[in-house]
């Protein structure tokens, strides 16, 4: 099945792309998508994930056409 993966902020800059379409096996998890996308980098503890724009954990199971986003810790508002 096909999924869309997006990276934001420092992750996007470090890996040099912002979006990629992946073909993954059925029942691939969020962490599994990361491993297929970036096999050289273990899933970092502080990376957040969203599936179709809702926060999910690394064990969430993906479906056809899902949009999965990975991003660093968020830092909105005034500091």
């Amino acid at each position: 099945m096909r999924i869309e993966v997006r990276l934001f902020a420092g992750l996007r800059e470090r890996h040099g792309f912002d979006a990629r379409t992946l073909t993954v096996p059925e029942n691939t998890t969020v962490a599994g998508a990361w491993a297929l996308l970036l096999p050289e980098e273990p899933f970092p503890d502080n990376v957040l994930a969203a599936r179709n724009m809702e926060y999910v954990g690394p064990d969430a199971i993906l479906s056809e056409n899902d949009e999965v986003a990975f991003f660093p810790p968020v830092t909105g508002g005034a500091r």
Partner: peptide
């Protein structure tokens, strides 16, 4: 405000005099 800061997807990149950096934690 606290929910926004801790969970809303925003990321800051600061421009310093000689360099730039992503802010990866909140005060």
């Amino acid at each position: 405000m606290e929910e926004l800061k801790s969970r809303a997807p925003f990321w800051k990149k600061e421009q310093l005099p000689e360099s730039s950096r992503w802010v990866e934690h909140n005060t």
